[in-house]
Each structure stands twice: as structure tokens, then as C-alpha cells.
Simulated scan of single mutants.
Amino acid sequence: MLDYNLLEKYGREIAILFVEDDENLSKEMALLLKDIFYKVDIAYDGEEAFFKYMSSTNNYDLIITDIQMPNMDGIELIKNIYRINPEQKVVVLSAHSETHYLMELVNVGVFQFVLKPIDYDNFLEVIFNVSRNIYNKRVYKNEKNSVFIKLSDELSWNKQEKQLILNQKVLKLTKKEFLFLDLLMKTPQKIYTNKQITNYLYDEESELDILISNLKNLISRLRKKVPMLDIQNNYGVGYSIRIY
């Protein structure tokens, strides 16, 4: 079942250009899309759409376009846009009678289609999946470019300095606490196995059970020291850290 709360979350920063020569359908879809996305622009043919695309100060995250339109059809519009931005997300509206165009569109690089007449449940499902992809890529890019990994409202990890920051103050960590966090922060939310962690932390050639017991004590002390640090025990497999 479609999660409308998540769709609303994804749509808050997504700009859409909707291209359709049927004026009634355009108005109807504009009302639907404006309830979800922060910016929705309408164009009635490919030529107008391409002009808006080139004139936009902020790039459109998603283009939704019909195929058969006057002045410039949807295929030419997509080809022109891909020459400028090969990564542009596009959803194509296609009537059953236009299926012969689909292979050409796939060859161009389009993989998302919605058949007309539009089934709104199916349409929203496609839009949800595309929006999630756009949102996740944006979050990943922001996290990758940021020096800080946010762990709570007050807590963050400085990737460059490898420091745990609480309310803008550096927390003092023991050597083992530092090594443990340093490992988990290499790929936040990845589950590191008990063996991976103990190999990283301890040089001793002790039994794995003893090392895991030491690890559990270390994590217990760290949780008491920094309660808002969300260290997750993943069903006895290992540990991960939850980011905000």
C-alpha cells in the first residue's frame, strides 16, 4: 500500500514539469501534483516545455510528458533534454495506440511509463518510486559532501577530524570507544559483524566469545556515556549505528 506520508516527505523539495497538450488533463493533473510537490509547472507542447526547461533557474527534478503533441513531440523533447542532462528523470505518458514508440524511448534511456487513460493508483505508485529515488540520491549526495554525520539533534560525528560532537563540544573517548565509532561511521547504518568489530578493536588472540563479551561491555559503557547515540544490536549478528 502506498505510503502517502513518505510521498509527501519526498515531494517537499522536488520540482516537476508536466507536459500535456490536453488542457483538461493538464489542469486535473496539476491539482493532484501540487498537493504533493513544492513546485509544479505546466507546458502544453514540447517546444514550450523545452523553453521552460532551459529558462528555469532551478532544474526540474522530474519531467512527466505525453508523447504526441504539436510543435515538438515528447520523443524530441526527451532527446533534447538528455543532450543537456543525461541523468534527468523522465516519466512518459503513453496511450495504448502509441506502444510502437516505447522501444525508441527505452533506447533513449526512458524506463518509466504510465499508460493512458491514467489509472491514478498506478500513476502514484510510479511517481512514488521515482520520487524516492530522487530523494535518496539527494540525501546521499548531501551526506557525502558534508563533514558531519548527524546522529541526533545535539550529536554529530566529524568525518574529517573523527570526533564525536555533543552540543558543539568534543566528547572525550577511550581508544576502544574511538575505534568502535570510527569503524561504524565508515558506512553508517551498515551492519558490522561481531567478528569484523572485534578484529578491528582487539589484537589479542582470545576466544571469540570472550572478545564479544568485551565488546558488549564497551558498548554498554558508551551508551551510558552518550545516551543519544543509537547503537543498534542486529539480532546477534553485529552492530550498526543509526543516523538522524
Rank of each mutant, 00 (worst) to 15 (best):
L2K: 10
L2I: 15
D3K: 07
Y4N: 08
N5C: 03
N5W: 07
N5Q: 14
Y10M: 01
Y10K: 08
G11S: 13
E13Y: 11
I14M: 08
I14C: 03
A15V: 06
I16T: 00
I16D: 08
L17W: 02
L17K: 01
F18S: 03
D21Q: 12
D22T: 05
D22F: 02
D22Q: 07
L25C: 05
E28S: 11
L31H: 14
D35A: 15
V40Y: 04
Y44R: 14
G46E: 06
G46H: 05
E47N: 14
E48M: 13
E48R: 05
A49D: 00
A49H: 06
A49E: 02
Y53P: 00
Y53E: 04
N58F: 14
D61C: 06
L62T: 01
T65A: 01
D66C: 04
D66Q: 05
I67K: 03
N71Y: 10
L77D: 00
I78H: 08
K79E: 13
I81W: 09
Y82N: 04
R83Y: 04
N85S: 11
N85W: 08
N85T: 03
V90M: 06
V92C: 01
V92S: 01
L93I: 03
A95D: 09
H96L: 12
H96G: 10
L102R: 13
M103R: 04
E104G: 07
L105S: 00
N107S: 08
V110L: 02
Q112D: 15
Q112P: 00
L115I: 06
Y120G: 06
N122M: 03
L124A: 01
E125V: 02
N129Q: 14
N129F: 13
N129I: 11
R132H: 12
R132C: 07
Y135N: 11
K137E: 15
V139Y: 05
Y140N: 15
K141F: 08
E143M: 08
K144W: 15
N145M: 15
V147K: 15
F148Y: 15
K150E: 09
D153Q: 11
L155R: 12
Q160G: 15
K162L: 11
L164E: 10
L166Y: 13
N167M: 00
N167K: 13
K169I: 06
L171P: 00
L171R: 00
K172F: 14
L173R: 04
L173F: 02
K175T: 12
K175Y: 05
K176Y: 11
L179D: 05
F180P: 01
D182M: 11
L184C: 07
M185E: 15
P188V: 09
I191A: 13
T193N: 09
N194W: 05
N194H: 11
Y200K: 07
Y200P: 07
Y202H: 03
Y202F: 12
E205F: 09
E205D: 13
S206G: 11
L208S: 05
L208E: 06
L211T: 04
L211V: 11
I212M: 01
L215P: 05
L215T: 09
K216P: 01
N217R: 12
R221T: 13
P227L: 00
P227A: 04
M228R: 09
D230P: 00
N233R: 09
N233G: 01
Y235C: 04
Y239F: 13
S240H: 08
S240N: 12
